[in-house]
Write a protein that binds this DNA or RNA. Structure first.
Lengths: 239, 239
DNA sequence: GATTACAGTGAACGACTGTACACTGAACAG
DNA sequence: CTGTTCAGTGTACAGTCGTTCACTGTAATC
């Protein structure tokens, strides 16, 4: 479960240095790098340091809320002087918005990946849970950021909420194609989609808070929760 | 729905000045207050300013994460000089722990209030949702703090997670008394309890993010979600 | 080849942070 | 009545913060 799985995650950004953030020579990050001597145009350069800022921020956010990020430490982490930060973002909040965009790109990748035409309920459930599991484990930073800031208040929380509503809306449309759900009112369909999304979010948080050893238990529980919900569908009287 | 409702919330702290935090004379908060000239022992005094610190913190946390709180502004808000803060808490984090304790006291009050012997599923559902609704609206600060920090990472998130697991555990025990659930494995019971709790949390967040005008719609949706889940119970094959 | 645009530098600012230390005055215990 | 305890005060210090401003060197343009 390695190559085939990894191939799915085209949505995940490269995350330049990544990892435990090695000692890292303090400055010459950019000046030493022309290993492969591409011409590297100026805007290419700019976008690279922009990405370095985003990557640094995401690293720092691994165990703190976004609101505690300081412009200076993000700049320093990217090998920049504080004032250079302004060449890319007018404020840390603008950085945050860019981070939401990057993370929701991963989220949309997951959604696209999960949208497979399923034959059985059980098949659909386990496939969806597996997709969530793989994407969360392959993009922990993004999902940690999203789940953390979703409830953190402020403009980021609102932006993420909008994205999750879109997520649920798309899911509702997909659900409408199922035979047992064709007669449901759109309101009830949204109720169901929200419920499923909330189970998925809960599962995501559980995965992020657990060590990977417990993944099997968590996904199994998630499948159970979805199965229980779907069991009620045939007996629902829509309004 | 005013007196009877309010009488329920004995768990809620008095929240001394509260409200929009009026102009407030900068200092003589305590020295001017002996309106009713009780003797007020020294430890009583101490506990009062401690509570003032907690109240101030909760006020400030209405729209920011806990990690951005500064010792100085909490002290100032309570009418104290910064160093006096240390007479009550060794650090802001210790203040946070006390805040978690206070808020979870409200949470336990809600749980106790919701534990009524119900005759029908429908009755149980609407009663539980109504209880959540009332408690959330009557203690918005506490619930906002809990839901915000639950996913904010750090020690507070862990403490709240523990409390919520206890909450779900108690619910599982209650559920075990229901006829259709008596044969269920404890594992499945916990799965169900977690699912219900996650619906309640979702509902809480929705209430806190909405204007009270939309409460009816939110509680109606919450009831639907629970109804759908309970519909699946008779058809569940426990493992 | 000369000129311009602009990503990144470096010093300096005023505001705010947590914390140390010596203090005051009133409630307390003897 | 005397001495102690201790919640709260006031000053001070070293860091960090966001933001300003004038600057440099090079890729891009004419």
């Amino acid at each position: 479960m390695s190559n085939a799985v990894d191939a799915v995650f085209s949505g995940a950004p490269p995350r330049a240095p990544a990892g435990g953030r090695p000692p890292a020579p303090p400055k010459e990050v950019r000046t030493l790098e022309p290993v492969s001597e591409e011409p590297v145009s100026r805007q290419e350069r700019k976008q690279r340091t922009r990405q370095a800022l985003l990557d640094t921020a995401l690293d720092l956010l691994a165990d703190r809320p976004f609101a505690t990020l300081s412009l200076r430490e993000v700049a320093k982490g990217a090998g920049l002087v504080p004032t250079a930060f302004y060449r890319h973002f007018a404020s840390t909040e603008e950085l945050g918005v860019a981070l939401v965009e990057e993370a929701t790109r991963t989220l949309r990748g997951m959604m696209r990946s999960a949208r497979t035409d399923p034959d059985t309920y059980q098949g659909m459930i386990s496939a969806s849970v597996a997709t969530v599991h793989q994407f969360v484990r392959a993009n922990e930073d993004h999902f940690r950021f999203l789940t953390r800031e979703r409830y953190g208040g402020g403009p980021l929380a609102r932006a993420i909420a909008v994205e999750l509503r879109m997520f649920a809306g798309d899911l509702a449309i997909d659900l409408a194609r199922f035979a047992p759900l064709r007669a449901w009112s759109t309101e009830d369909l949204h109720m169901l989609a929200d419920l499923i999304v909330s189970v998925m979010i809960t599962t995501t948080v559980e995965l992020l808070e657990a060590r990977p050893v417990e993944d099997a238990k968590i996904t199994a529980t998630a499948e159970k929760r979805l199965r229980l919900i779907l069991l009620g569908i045939p007996h629902w009287k829509t309004s």
